[in-house]
Amino acid sequence: MIHTSLVLAADDPAALATFYGALLEVAPQPGLTPSHWRLPWQAGGHLEIYAPSRRRPQPPQQGRLALCLQRHAQDGDPHAALLAWLEQAQALGAAELDPPRQESFGMEAWVLDPEGNRVLLLMLKG
């Protein structure tokens, strides 16, 4: 059986695990080494955050791959729900990349996590 996870290299894995744990509303779990953390996905698998080996560094880089964190607006107002989530992300160290915008499926906003990785916050209708 194959298990699926995403891996994210980090300069400070513990701090980045705390950031994503708060946004995903899950507790970070210690990984295989002191510089490795795991966050369980609700649908299965994990977000693996680790410090890369000094022999094989993983420099930060821009690309087209990004994490997409999704929620449903519980009160029926995706705009207000997204603004609250965006405010939480910024309080945790995220930087707004693109302001919130309305799409046919709900509201979205792009942010940079505390280490500069692109993240899409997606608030779906109802």
Results as ranks from 00 to 15, higher is better:
residue 98 D to Q: 12
residue 114 P to N: 11
residue 111 V to N: 00
residue 96 E to Y: 05
residue 48 E to V: 13
residue 80 A to P: 01
residue 101 R to T: 10
residue 58 Q to Y: 13
residue 67 L to M: 12
residue 47 L to W: 02
residue 26 V to A: 10
residue 19 F to H: 03
residue 1 M to C: 06
residue 34 P to N: 11
residue 112 L to N: 11
residue 95 A to G: 01
residue 107 M to I: 06
residue 110 W to N: 02
residue 111 V to P: 00
residue 94 A to Q: 07
residue 64 R to T: 12
residue 61 Q to S: 15
residue 115 E to K: 01
residue 110 W to V: 05
residue 44 G to N: 09
residue 66 A to I: 00
residue 52 P to C: 11
residue 28 P to V: 03
residue 126 G to S: 09
residue 114 P to H: 13
residue 54 R to G: 06
residue 74 Q to P: 02
residue 122 L to K: 06
residue 32 L to M: 14
residue 84 A to G: 00
residue 90 Q to H: 04
residue 97 L to G: 01
residue 75 D to I: 11
residue 12 D to W: 00
residue 77 D to H: 07
residue 86 L to Y: 09
residue 121 L to Q: 08
residue 76 G to C: 01
residue 103 E to G: 10
residue 95 A to P: 02
residue 80 A to L: 09
residue 124 L to N: 14
residue 1 M to R: 12
residue 89 A to C: 08
residue 56 R to D: 12
residue 109 A to E: 03
residue 123 M to I: 01
residue 57 P to F: 06
residue 73 A to P: 00
residue 32 L to R: 12
residue 75 D to S: 14
residue 46 H to C: 02
residue 98 D to N: 03
residue 8 L to G: 01
residue 76 G to P: 07
residue 90 Q to T: 13
residue 81 A to K: 03
residue 74 Q to G: 07
residue 90 Q to C: 15
residue 107 M to A: 02
residue 94 A to R: 05
residue 76 G to F: 04
residue 111 V to L: 07
residue 38 R to I: 04
residue 41 W to I: 14
residue 43 A to N: 14
residue 71 R to N: 06
residue 79 H to Y: 12
residue 4 T to E: 06
residue 107 M to K: 03
residue 58 Q to C: 14
residue 113 D to C: 05
residue 75 D to K: 12
residue 115 E to M: 04
residue 53 S to E: 13
residue 14 A to Y: 00
residue 13 P to L: 02
residue 104 S to I: 08
residue 22 A to P: 02
residue 116 G to E: 02
residue 52 P to Y: 09
residue 2 I to A: 09
residue 86 L to D: 08
residue 120 L to I: 10
residue 38 R to K: 10
residue 51 A to F: 04
residue 63 G to Y: 08
residue 70 Q to G: 07
residue 53 S to A: 13
residue 126 G to C: 01
residue 104 S to P: 01
residue 18 T to W: 02
residue 116 G to D: 04
residue 21 G to A: 07
residue 21 G to Y: 08
residue 30 P to G: 06
residue 28 P to M: 08
residue 23 L to S: 01
residue 61 Q to K: 14
residue 14 A to W: 02
residue 1 M to P: 10
residue 10 A to R: 03
residue 105 F to Y: 15
residue 98 D to F: 05
residue 71 R to A: 14
residue 3 H to C: 03
residue 104 S to D: 15
residue 11 D to M: 04
residue 33 T to Y: 11
